[in-house]
Write a protein that binds this DNA or RNA. Structure first.
Lengths: 329, 329
DNA sequence: CTGAAAGCGCTAACAG
DNA sequence: CTGTTAGCGCTTTCAG
């Protein structure tokens, strides 16, 4: 590898002068500058980032710790993180914590030893002692996809997702509702809240099919128990669950979206590939990555170090055939 | 950050001695060694990898260049790469080339400036001048998911995948066949080859539905044209395509797998979530990542630097309902 | 067994 | 405008 010294020798100046031209220091003889740049291009010289970093400047490296890159949700986020980071000249070190705290700790240590300028992470336990202890780490950390106390974070509002789905289904004329997924999830809370606001009696006209207590037969029963002119609005906790529900509905011969509507969550590509295409709530994954990188970099540059920024992005409902009732009852 | 000097001062020895205990040099007073290790643990000291690297030793960093991490296929591979690399103490810098040559070049340059110990990459043009020129790069490069001349590589045999699917469908008693996807793909070649070997007349009993020339209506026509007792074996170039075909078959009311069987490729999680579950060919993604890391690291350690290793892994057919005919005609 | 010293490639004062 | 001089934190001879 060519070094600055080599270039300096070729041009006949000192190494510091060469350093100056690369660091954009204006006080350099234009001719010298010219020559240095030419030679650098000719020999494809790149400053050694490692050495730059050692003298104390930035490492131009950011660490990203996520549970698992093979989860499409995170791979989309990481995609946008990497894309955005590279715009600023940053490279990304990828770490899969698999949501194991010891691994997470280990990775934070490793990232520190690499002198990364900042870390973007999905804490496995955001309120936990370990992660909260990181708040006075000298290297900036921004939480992603989760809103966490004491840290800047970029996430999506699941409550609002639930609200929006409720509003949508209600406005389409459905009168009975079900949430399929973990009871108590923020999406369920928002869903119920908005149903109530619209005067739905959640005791009689709502059911939560929680994996732990119910199975899909309870859902088919709920559907069968409804009277003929009652439309049923179904909200599944994610697209995979929605897919399962879709199969059930098809098997049961339920007319969609006349008799029942279905909305999923995450807007995975499957949702538009099946028939009928399933409505789904999209998280702005691209946006999460973009904003997180932006905040992190502004922290690296020592701006607003003290105040933590909590960005909670709005989910976006993508309506497809599964809930697109054209003629209301 | 604590440095070796700090630890040295605390213990009352020179910095070099501390360095010795971390580098595993046996010539260190056991008591001193003991103390150093204790203090390091107590203060959570980690050697600065950056500095280590600067003096010329390994950077413990490997670069991974893939087209796009949000492609589930690559995210699975990267998952296993990262997992395997971390076992050896390596960290991974992730780069998305988006199959743009200029980006790829750029990333290779960046990775070099970070002094990575090696690169694992999916070349956007493996036989191209640029990538081939990299063959005498001082830092080892291993190609993944593609078999490339002059480089060690780890990939899957698409030809064998095609062969195996043909064998499977034929043995299940189907007598007409179709490949849905890009004509000339290795999978198609293997598919045809094996059909011919089994005496299938590929002029009359085979069709390739290439995106460019045909659309799905050609497929439905092909199916309708078959006589009642002819079973049709369908092989789709990937699971997404298979999904589309599945919808078509359902719409047409084709009985599966009696009248038609369907096999996809990539064994995406969708394939097992739809109904009927689609048979699919799995690539050993985990294995690709594992082996690639292994080869790369052995190269880093200067073993078998000269000889290139070409590993071509066998795909694995996962048979599901869509092609699981129980009673043959 | 151990300290001193050189140096990896680069940045950042500090004098000119 | 530019050369000199210190290091950054660590590894590695080279003498003890």
């Amino acid at each position: 590898m060519l070094t600055m010294k080599d270039i300096a020798k070729m041009v006949g100046v000192s190494q510091s002068t060469v350093s100056r031209v690369f660091s954009g220091n204006p006080s350099v003889n234009p001719e010298v500058k010219q020559k240095v740049i030419e030679l650098a291009k000719e020999y494809d010289y790149k400053p050694n980032v490692i050495a730059q970093n050692l003298v104390g400047s930035k490492s131009m490296l950011i660490g990203v710790i996520i549970p698992c890159i093979s989860n499409p949700f995170f791979s989309d986020v990481v995609m946008s993180i990497e894309r955005e980071a590279s715009k600023y000249g940053y490279s990304v070190i990828l770490c899969n914590s698999e949501e194991i705290l010891s691994k997470e700790k280990n990775y934070v240590g490793i990232l520190n030893s690499y002198n990364v300028d900042g870390i973007l992470m999905v804490p496995s336990d955001g309120q936990g002692k370990y992660f909260q202890g990181l708040k006075n780490s000298k290297i900036p950390i921004v939480a992603i996809t989760q809103d966490v106390q004491n840290f800047s974070s970029v996430s999506t509002s699941h409550v609002n997702a639930g609200r929006e789905v409720a509003r949508h289904l209600y406005s389409m004329g459905y009168s009975k509702f079900a949430f399929i997924g973990k009871a108590g999830d923020d999406k369920e809370s928002g869903f119920i809240e908005e149903l109530v606001k619209n005067g739905v009696n959640t005791l009689t006209d709502y059911i939560c099919i929680d994996y732990k207590k119910y199975n899909l037969s309870h859902l088919s029963q709920y559907i069968n128990d409804s009277s003929e002119n009652e439309g049923i609005g179904l909200f599944a906790i994610n697209d995979l669950t929605a897919l399962t529900v879709l199969d059930l509905l098809k098997e049961m011969g339920v007319e969609m979206p006349q008799k029942a509507a279905l909305v999923g969550f995450d807007n995975t590509f499957i949702s538009k590939e099946v028939s009928p295409a399933i409505s789904s709530v999209a998280q702005p994954l691209e946006e999460i990555g973009r904003q997180a990188v932006e905040i992190l970099i502004s922290k690296v540059n020592k701006n607003n170090l003290e105040k933590e920024i909590h960005i909670i992005l709005e989910p976006r409902l993508v309506v497809r055939e599964s809930s697109m009732k054209l003629n209301r009852y």
